[in-house]
Write a protein that binds this DNA or RNA. Sequence first.
DNA 1: TATTGTTATACTCTATAACTATA
DNA 2: TATAGTTATAGAGTATAACAATA
Lengths: 163, 163
Amino acid sequence: MTSRRDIEDDRRDLAAMTVPLGRALMAGEQPILAAHDLTMWAYIVLAALSRSPSRTQAALADAIGADRTRIIPVLDDLQARRLIDRTADPTDRRVRLLSLTSEGQRVFRSTRTAIRAYERRLLDHLPANDRRAFVRSLARLSELGWSELVSPGGQAGPDSPTR
Amino acid sequence: MTSRRDIEDDRRDLAAMTVPLGRALMAGEQPILAAHDLTMWAYIVLAALSRSPSRTQAALADAIGADRTRIIPVLDDLQARRLIDRTADPTDRRVRLLSLTSEGQRVFRSTRTAIRAYERRLLDHLPANDRRAFVRSLARLSELGWSELVSPGGQAGPDSPTR
DNA sequence: TATTGTTATACTCTATAACTATA
DNA sequence: TATAGTTATAGAGTATAACAATA
């Protein structure tokens, strides 16, 4: 007879399930983002600034796991479209203070609402209990931080990539 | 008072949690794969062939969501190391029959065992119930296939990428 | 001298197109 | 002519390095 443990172990690796799922989720968001005239990176920036304004671009890049140099064209565009404010700090003119404009907030909220509707349709494939546990677990693992994810309970492990 | 629904909706997007988790899982597997002298793609190929041998390279590429052209150097290497058999089908000499050698099976199994141990340490961060529900849900969603993931219950949606 | 932001360059991964051989 | 496999090339996305401004 086959034990419960054997059954559970007969599955794909977590990475082999998680990575393609992530790609599919990004692809699923794509048309929604396009309908709101946002790129993925632009949306990520708006989301980060909606959580909290940022005092430097480097801090923002760090918060979203992006390279410092890569968000610059994104910020240029968002600023030109008046979705973010980006002003030099008077007390340290090297620094750029970043925050959402009210229009930026509006665009972000409406985009996120559409994305949540998409996610709800997707999660409908799971029974209600599992659905809650799944989202909760995902959130929990996401909070862990790079090094604990890469080598749980363990030593150093490989460095975090810039993104 | 805040409703349960509001609390649940105050979270990151699924993609924003899933994609970084996937990257971390890949990074976590990296040292294990290196210790077994395998690249990620080599491991993916071994895993696919362990599930079922493949009659053509194209079918294998398709099964693992890879480009036909990209697995070729991987197969060259695995063959040179006697981890896979790769012989021309006598009935159609265009075709390459692919299967694991017994050494390939051994390497794959021992690598997967190490990866499972890593995953277990990681999943220890979740309560036992959630852990089971999480893995079960991940498996369920993974079975859905690209188009259902991208536009659940919906229309066409963007094409699947080659990988 | 150190740091923020920026620009220019290089690199990695992936996809596309062109070629060979079989059918 | 169509298909499997292969090779060579081009493209996207990303990271690295060098630079200007400010502290």
